[in-house]
Amino acid sequence: MKSPKLSPYVLGAVLALAAPVALRAAGELNLFGWSEYVPQTVIDGFTKQTGIKVNFETYSSNEEMISKLVAGGGRYDLVQPSDYAAEAMIRQKLLAPLDTAKLTHLKNLMPEFVRRPHDPEGRFTVPYMSGTVGIVVNTEKVKTPVKGYRDVFQPRFKDRIVVLNDSREIVTWALYSLGLPINAIDAGSLANARPLVASWVKLVKVFDSDSPKTPLLNGDVDLGIVWSGEAAILWNQNKKFQYVIPAEGAHQYIDVLAIPAGAKNKAEAHQFINFILRPEVSKLVSAAFPYTNPNAAARKLLTAAELANPASYPAGGKLETFRDIGKVAADIDRLVTDLKSAQ
């Protein structure tokens, strides 16, 4: 490897590569996105097309992203919050309005994913991918039909259940089962939900938000309530894992792209958003992470098998996004911590 003959060529190659990069020093984008959500091929493709260098950092929760954004000033040019987090960020003036004239592919988006309550005028956010929280059932082990939350939390499934380790999700399922609103939470509705949540947490074997598919694949549990993307991967591995949108209603999340108010490279950020909106790019995201693609033009490019995945593209059901609930979140967290530790 250390052959001296090669070095002039190597040096020449390095110079050839470095020169154009140096010339385009202005083109840079600091992307701050979810882990396991933006394929590296898409980022490389963007750099190849535009010459813009992408610095990619990841986070694993909206809360983590917001605290780093607030602490880091203008370090990030593009972030990827979920709907309710974007709503709070808009209210706190943390996001910059978008220049929609630059987003020529905006028309590719399906109308049901834009101008949702978190950004009613669509001025700050562009949908990236969407998903739901639903029931996944190993039909080889569970023979009876499972349609809603109450079918999952039955005493006969004790220690056979995995659920997300997320206090608000768990309380939301209880609120749905009781027919209560999921976004207007107060002390009264929490008191109503408490006995139900108490009986449920006793039945759960695993609480896991990062990879709830693992205990299902390992055979340690037979059913669960998980992110639809996880369920879609399970379905791809084995058709015995069926995805069900709970009859009582389900949480839908729309993860968006948005530009922080303090961003330094806003033009590049717009370019990246427009790049993601291109059908052939959006298709690559779907292939790597089988969530629900909000891009109508991209959906036309998906394979029949991808579109037939019931977790990625569920057939209807009552879906609602989360709204920012502010400080009640602390009461929810306390309730679930209390009930878990009371076991």
Partner: peptide, 14 residues
Amino acid sequence: DLMGGARVPLIGNV
């Protein structure tokens, strides 16, 4: 979290 399934919170988890 990993081996206990995050069922029973200890103070570190909280």
